[in-house]
Nucleic acid binder design. Sequence first.
DNA 1: ACCTGAACACCGTTCAAGT
DNA 2: ACCTGAACACCGTTCAAGT
Lengths: 212, 212
Amino acid sequence: MGRPPRLSRDAICDAAFALVVETGGADFTLRDLGNRLGVDATAVYRHFADKDDLLREVGDRSMAPVTRGFTITDDPAEDIRRLCSRLRSALIKSPVSLSIVAAGPTRRRNELLITEVVVGALRRMGLGNSRAVIAYHALIEYTLGSAWLDAPLAAKGARRSATYRAWRRDYASLDPDEFADTVAVADELYPSSDAVFQAGLNALITGLTRGQ
Amino acid sequence: MGRPPRLSRDAICDAAFALVVETGGADFTLRDLGNRLGVDATAVYRHFADKDDLLREVGDRSMAPVTRGFTITDDPAEDIRRLCSRLRSALIKSPVSLSIVAAGPTRRRNELLITEVVVGALRRMGLGNSRAVIAYHALIEYTLGSAWLDAPLAAKGARRSATYRAWRRDYASLDPDEFADTVAVADELYPSSDAVFQAGLNALITGLTRGQ
DNA sequence: ACCTGAACACCGTTCAAGT
DNA sequence: ACCTGAACACCGTTCAAGT
């Protein structure tokens, strides 16, 4: 009895997160994880209840860089912009985290820190609790949604612009009678996803906090 | 040789869509589908290349009600609101469609009809092609993101408000020094997801089309 | 031509056995 | 106490065989 542990929640979580970032994480497997750790796949069950338990930990870890070193300024709108942009980048790098947050808030430390910054900024802008909460949810929905839709394309890397070109060609060759407006803008579709995100984010912040 | 087909792409797609709507579709299985069709699971491969091919068809089918009977008015902003609300409802009912559209546009008929309506409305509001496209993408990202985050909760049905209550309690019991703003609004968190969606959608439309 | 059913290469997870 | 490895109940998919 008594054997020094070779594994720990932390070490497993580190390896899992690294694996997810390297491979894109679409097909994250406990067998691969065990392989990387030099351990049988099922050894993980000594430290986590199941795969979901592990992934929730990985999900929160992927959000650590969002608030690390984040400074609050006297421009709350700009704080929100910076924080949401950071959140989006972090999630795009770790797509597994996206499916985790979609299932519901993890309510773990790093996620809570994000909530605190955004809600705080909205309240400092003069919004009452009820309006602040609605604005908070709308901003988070938009940021997560943007990351979620962009993650598969970000994973494609260099092939991304080729993909866009192929899609534009499809839109351009539609029946110009039935799809007049789409055909008219076909060449402009799929602009920089950062530009789209910034435009939407600005519109949201302005619209949701107007009249304060 | 020559045997009358018992299956067809259409019949398979109908059954698959029904199965997805009934079960929530989180664990849609070809074996279940075969079972429902009274056919071996692998018979589907005579009509579809693979599961993804079938799901793309199901995804487009789930969007059929979005533009069916949709009338364009002389209030483009209102048209966008109505169409995005319809899209959100349709996707919440068929969560598999969400993972399909996340992988990239299907560019099938029903999806194209949605694009045409939204882009058309934005152009009629006076936006140039480049700005119309950016607004279109931001609106779609927001609508899909909202549906994606709401789908698991919608599937919970009656247990939804109990879930919200439990979450609010978690937020309320945080350390009030470190999470002052979150604790202050804890009771208001997780308002009606429809209210959040409408508020964000209005803010987006206003902010993205201002100055026309 | 269309469907069947065995088979393959995977999953997550359980549990008795080793150390 | 911790890890191993066989085993179970699943997947999607392939392919030869039946009709």
